[in-house]
């Protein structure tokens, strides 16, 4: 397959065939991580700039590892201590990145649309969205898809429940897009105050009762719950939230016998997920982290190569 994407801002334009091809390539990348020497020369001489204007541990680290395994030079440009905190505009940042001859820019930003803006302004570098506001987090969706496919095989017709704060979740938005493309039926659950208004137009169902969503599901996806939501009056109390929408053994027991439990991390144990579930046999949360490196390797490899 000829790869036609230079950037990854959203998965919207990716076809199902492209997603399938991408996941296949990811499989071979994962094999590299089992080797005694985890390094291949494929991206020698390429410069990858990690630009994180918001905190991140695993996404940034996994982009960094991915780049380094492929022999790219990875530079971490974090917002604290950078000129962003000195009032540099995004436009100046773009010019700076361009002047530094970056081949790829990985960007996370609190504002929706920043990765898209960079992709339009940067003439040479590839741009990868590592999370923009509440809009999207496409590489998270790819690693979730990869992990689910690895555990369940073909995902066509599988049932997925996404439970929690969908309204503020960029992970949920990207995952809905990606899993639906692969033929997965998605049902949302969580407090009505934390649901987007347009669940139907997203092509997904909504049930307020988490047990109904979990019933027979093959994938149980629990979203991170911010404690501030309680202060904002969006959830009744942490205890009640945990009882009604948290990943508990009794909720998980309603799912299909082969079901997997996923979470994008970092987890709030005792809030949206009980430790017995997080560390239990259904949990694939650590597999997700590992997949994250392989997925980002495939992304860098496919989008950065070739003549520009």
């Amino acid at each position: 397959m000829e790869w036609r994407h230079k950037n990854l801002i959203t998965l919207e334009g990716w076809t199902r065939e492209e997603l399938g091809f991408f996941l296949d390539q990811t499989e071979y990348m994962e094999e590299l991580l089992n080797r005694p020497i985890k390094k291949v020369p494929a991206l020698r001489g390429k410069i990858v700039m990690n630009c994180f204007f918001e905190n991140s541990t695993r996404t940034r680290a996994s982009f960094e590892i991915a780049g380094k395994v492929l022999s790219a030079d990875v530079i971490n440009w974090s917002s604290s201590g950078s000129s962003a905190s000195k009032g540099e505009t995004l436009r100046d940042t773009v010019w700076t990145l361009e002047a530094m001859a970056a081949d790829a820019v990985v960007v996370r930003h609190g504002e929706v649309g920043v990765p898209d803006y960079l992709a339009k302004k940067l003439t040479k570098a590839s741009v990868f969205n590592a999370g923009d506001g509440t809009n999207g987090h496409p590489t998270q969706a790819l690693l979730d898809l990869y992990t689910a496919r690895q555990k369940l095989g073909n995902l066509e017709g599988a049932k997925m429940a996404i439970i929690g704060d969908v309204l503020h979740s960029r992970v949920a938005r990207s995952d809905i897009q990606a899993f639906r493309k692969m033929g997965v039926h998605v049902t949302l659950s969580g407090p009505a105050t934390l649901m987007p208004e347009n669940t139907a137009s997203l092509g997904v169902g909504y049930v307020s009762d988490a047990r109904e969503a979990a019933e027979g599901a093959d994938i149980l996806y629990f979203l991170r719950m911010q404690r501030e939501r309680q202060e904002d009056g969006l959830i009744p109390s942490i205890d009640e939230y945990h009882r009604r929408w948290g990943a508990t053994d009794s909720l998980v027991s309603l799912a299909s016998p082969r079901a997997v439990v996923m979470h994008p991390g970092p987890m709030n144990r005792g809030m949206e997920i009980a430790s017995s579930v997080a560390d239990g046999p259904r949990s694939v949360i650590l597999d997700q982290v590992r997949s994250g490196v392989a997925v980002r390797m495939a992304l860098l490899y496919l989008c950065l190569g070739g003549v520009r």
């Binding site: 990348m29 291949v40 020698r44």
Partner: peptide
């Protein structure tokens, strides 16, 4: 594939296959 010396001059990235 990942060890090719022409990887930066090809117009399209060659497809990776399995190593075992």
């Amino acid at each position: 594939t990942l060890y090719r010396d022409d990887i930066s001059v090809l117009s399209d990235q060659p497809v990776v296959h399995s190593t075992s």
